[in-house]
């Protein structure tokens, strides 16, 4: 049986963690994602940019109390890709 190819954008530890985190929330701040994934700032920024370029997330930059604030949320395209990825993973795990 041929397995469906896994989405290369999501088939990465940190990017998959970010998208899985955003699936359960409306929006999340950069610092929240940083804490929950345990990633470094630099690596997280790079992976967020890749997800943004793929159209999977929206990154909003603004200010709160004069401090920069970055908020991320999943797009419908990102949600679809995540669902497809989970389905594909299930195929791989099926005995």
């Amino acid at each position: 049986m041929a397995f469906a190819p896994l989405d290369p954008v999501l088939h990465n530890q940190l990017r998959l963690a970010v998208v899985s985190l955003l699936v359960g929330v409306e929006s999340a701040e950069f610092t929240f994602i940083l804490e929950r994934t345990g990633a470094t700032r630099g690596n997280l920024s790079v992976q967020l940019t890749k997800l943004k370029e793929a159209g999977y997330i929206v990154v909003k930059k603004g200010y709160r109390d004069n401090y920069p604030l970055t908020t991320c949320s999943l797009t419908p395209k990102g949600m679809k890709a995540f669902e497809r990825y989970v389905e594909a993973i299930k195929d791989y795990l099926r005995p």
Binding site: H11, L16, S20, G24, R36, T37, L93
Partner: peptide, 25 residues
Amino acid sequence: MDPQLTPDQSLRIIQDMVLQAKKSF
């Protein structure tokens, strides 16, 4: 080059992160 994830690892990441988000009330 990204390190290769096994399906098991992928599933564990998804479960962990969904659980993290759930704790965020």
